[in-house]
Design a protein around this nucleic acid. Structure first.
Lengths: 236, 236
DNA sequence: GCCTGTGAATCCATTCACAGCT
DNA sequence: AGCTGTGAATGGATTCACAGGC
């Protein structure tokens, strides 16, 4: 019953930056998520004019506080210039290095329904260096069909073989909940070490495998919980 | 520049349960998210046999610790029986009442690309009482087209009128990032008080409006950050 | 004996306030 | 003067350990 390694629960970290090798600070998980968010406006800005950006401005653009921005960045080094700010181009490069998005990653997707299809076709992935190399589905009616992105849907039974041949690193699950655990097993048996799971169930994985869950309805339920609070307040 | 009310930042809470009215405890935001997750296995279980469930078992199914489950539930009342556990049916009902998912909610979606389409057609929403009453897109080529779910795509200019007529409570944004802010303004001008945003940018909303962001690439970047750590560890 | 409910203790993350550089 | 970098303080959330009821 090897407990699954959910990302939030830990994996401290041996980080790449040289000075971290010695200092070995622990990086808060929320920091990593915010770094990803910081990179969005930086990408936009890196085209247009602005050469430097202050923590205050970046914070505004991302909806966080400025000390938060500074602290997050300071975990990994000194990227700014006091009295000036951060160089947009450099900062973006540093963040990408930290997040390991300065390299390409290989993905496969399992479950080509509406959602699976939307994910494979999504431009944002390719643009950021995430490349889908295979698409799987167990439905014989879908197998063999070619998607607009050029991939041909493979039967799930070819998974192990293809994942190894194509050196696929990350698996994305977009199946109905009922199939998610079976698919997870297939993926991990094929040597996959990281899974992005869109099915609204908690899948079990062997020790050392990462799982990140994306559940739309959790987000919605979060909204309605607070929304009801607000309308209640409005009434009294 | 009214600062946007992101859900994580607060909105404490005046909760529904009578005893909370007086006690006024603050509920941690992560607790709300976990409650949503607890309800998934409970829904499955409520069909099949099992009448009671212990915090240990529920924790296993959701990938959290058992004291966590107990504490989360205890914020809202005493739903269990000591020495026995929680009644599956009752617990599910209580959680739904807490989250306000015991009632129906009305949604609209803006941006009918692959993702927007996948969301509207998604069975999970309807099943949980989230009903799409309108779909908008600004592309004249899409307007007038009828989706499999029966909705006809409306031009964005009809938004205010339809949202008010149909009493739509929540807006979902599935447009490209560039259009997201404009759409947000349209939605909030139409009286929308809560937005689920799938565009990878931080949108600005007037005071009192809720925004919940879902950004797939943030999740992926979270994964690759930790994945690189692991492979590094493997090398030494 | 078993499992819930909960204050106390611990752990973690964010905020603050200011020292340090440009 | 302006803005980063950071220890110290605060505020939250999780874990612990056990009291309370079945």
């Amino acid at each position: 019953m090897a407990s699954q390694v959910l990302i939030p629960s830990g994996i401290s970290g041996t980080n790449q930056a040289k000075w971290l090798m010695t200092k070995t600070k622990k990086i808060p998980v929320p920091t990593i998520e915010r770094l990803a968010r910081y990179s969005r406006p930086l990408e936009d800005l890196s085209g247009s004019g602005d050469v430097v950006i202050s923590s205050v401005r970046l914070a505004e653009l991302c909806g966080v506080t400025s000390p938060q921005v500074r602290k997050d960045l300071a975990y990994f080094g000194e990227f700014g210039t006091r009295g000036v700010g951060y160089n947009v181009e450099d900062l973006l490069k540093e963040i990408k290095k930290i997040l390991a998005t300065d390299q390409e990653w290989t993905l496969c997707i399992v479950g080509i329904g509406n959602l699976g299809n939307a994910l494979v076709e999504n431009e944002n992935f390719r643009k950021r260096g995430y490349n889908f190399l295979a698409a799987f589905d167990s439905d014989p009616k879908k197998v063999g069909h070619t998607l607009s992105c050029g991939l041909t849907i493979e039967p799930s039974r070819n998974m192990a073989q293809l994942i190894q041949k194509l050196h696929i690193e990350i698996g994305i699950i977009a199946t109905p909940p009922f199939d998610a655990q079976k698919v997870t097993n297939l993926l991990t048996d094929s040597g996959i070490k990281a899974i992005l799971n869109f099915a609204p169930i908690q899948v079990r994985v062997p020790e050392g495998c990462l799982v990140e869950n994306v559940d739309f309805t959790v987000s919605l339920e979060n909204i309605v919980y607070h929304l009801r609070d607000i309308s209640k307040k409005g009434l009294f």
